[in-house]
Simulated assay, not measured.
Amino acid sequence: MCILFIANKMRDDYPLIIAANRDEFYARPTAPSTFWKSHPHLLAGQDLEADGTWMGVTRNGKIAALTNVRDPHNINKNAVSRGELVANWLKQNPAQKDYAEQSAYLATLEETRHQYNGYNLLFGDVTALRVYNNVNNSTHSIDTGVYGLSNADIATPWPKVTQGVTALNVYVQQQNTINADDLFNILRHENKAEDALLPDTGVGYEWEKALSSIFIQTEKYGTRTSTLLLVDKNNTLTWKERRFSDKGKTVETRAFSFSI
Rank of each mutant, 00 (worst) to 15 (best):
M1Q: 10
M1T: 15
C2H: 14
F5E: 08
R11C: 12
D12S: 11
D12C: 13
P15G: 07
A19I: 09
A19R: 01
Y26N: 03
F35E: 01
W36Q: 07
W36E: 07
H39R: 13
H39T: 14
H41N: 07
H41Y: 14
L42F: 06
L43K: 10
L43H: 04
G45R: 00
Q46P: 12
Q46F: 11
L48I: 01
G52F: 02
R59H: 06
R59Q: 15
G61H: 04
L66D: 05
R70W: 01
K77R: 11
R82E: 01
L85T: 05
A87E: 07
N88P: 04
L90R: 03
N93H: 05
P94W: 00
S103Y: 09
A107L: 01
T108C: 10
E110K: 11
E111Y: 12
Q115K: 12
Q115D: 09
N117H: 08
L121W: 03
L121M: 05
V126L: 10
T127G: 06
T127C: 03
A128N: 14
L129H: 12
L129T: 06
R130A: 04
N133I: 01
N137M: 00
N137Y: 01
T139D: 03
H140T: 13
S141G: 06
G145V: 09
V146G: 14
V146Q: 05
Y147W: 11
L149A: 12
N151T: 15
N151R: 07
A155P: 02
A155R: 08
K160M: 07
G164N: 10
N176M: 15
D182K: 13
L183H: 05
I186P: 02
R188S: 11
E190D: 15
N191H: 14
K192I: 13
A193T: 15
L198I: 10
L198N: 14
T201I: 03
W207F: 14
E208G: 11
Q217I: 03
T218D: 03
L228V: 04
K233E: 14
N234E: 12
N234V: 09
N235A: 10
K240N: 12
E241A: 05
R243H: 11
V251E: 11
S257A: 13
